[in-house]
């Protein structure tokens, strides 16, 4: 490994009861590149993200984040190192107002440790970013699906993560919204490492500098998008 790795995984496995969902993954995501993970439904993509974030614990294997072994660190400890993520199903604070949701994110100890103190201003900024100013005082559970998705992404950006895991951020958005999001991700990648799971190849593939295909809990191909899309096995899975 000559390039510094954002994220590196060795011999990672995860079983739920008798079912092995992640079956021995070795992979490194290098810094300065936009990474896309694809794979059929149930391939284990979200589970892989949950293992990275610490939301679930691996059965075996080691995980390195931003140059540190984080296998035994808790979710919040990993966040403190600079890991951020969005969830496939929006994971917000449904009883609180939109602005309170953003305030909680802006008030996070991740920012406090870096000495950022004006969290209200950060939250205001994020409110504009997700274009929810008109719904500022509304409870999040009254938001539409699309609005919740926007808030979800805005929240994960507030903490300025060094590495951002995006789990199907395009799902359920309109064509225009997807394009806008793609532009945002592109701009963001200048300062933030991005690993994205996405089914919508049309929008996501042009973003990707490196493509990894997950199938039945194993990596079946990894490399430049052109290369990988030529892989006969990948073409077979995707019926190309």
């Amino acid at each position: 490994m000559n390039v510094a790795a954002l994220l590196e995984v060795r011999g990672l496995t995860k079983s739920f009861g008798a079912v092995e969902v992640i079956r021995g993954i070795d992979v490194a995501f290098e810094e300065g590149k936009r990474h896309l993970i694809i794979g059929p439904n149930g391939a284990g993509k979200t589970t892989f993200f949950n293992l990275m974030g610490g939301q679930i614990r691996s059965s075996s294997g080691r995980i390195q984040l931003l140059g540190r072994d984080v296998t035994d660190l808790s979710v919040s400890q990993r966040a403190m190192l600079g890991l951020g993520r969005t969830f496939q199903i929006a994971s917000l604070f449904p009883q609180l107002s939109v602005f309170d949701n953003l305030l909680i994110a802006a008030d996070s100890p991740v920012l406090a440790q870096r000495g950022t103190s004006d969290f209200t201003a950060l939250a205001e900024e994020a409110l504009d970013l997700c274009e929810l100013r008109s719904r500022r005082y509304d409870r999040v559970r009254t938001l539409s699906y699309g609005e919740q998705r926007r808030l979800e992404i805005a929240m994960s950006l507030v903490t300025r993560p060094k590495l951002l895991l995006l789990d199907e951020p395009m799902a359920g958005l309109t064509r225009d919204e997807r394009q806008a999001l793609a532009d945002r991700i592109l701009a963001l990648s200048a300062s933030t490492g991005i690993v994205m799971i996405e089914h919508d190849l049309e929008t996501a593939l042009p973003l990707a500098e490196k493509l990894t295909v997950l199938h039945l809990g194993q990596i079946v191909a990894s490399g430049s998008p052109e290369e990988v899309m030529q892989n006969p096995f990948v073409r077979q899975i995707y019926l190309l």
Binding site: S74, V75, M80, S91, L92, F93, P94, A105, S108, P109
Partner: peptide, 11 residues
Amino acid sequence: DNEMRMKTLGY
């Protein structure tokens, strides 16, 4: 409302 999200935000 959402303990896991709080942890994910570093709390």
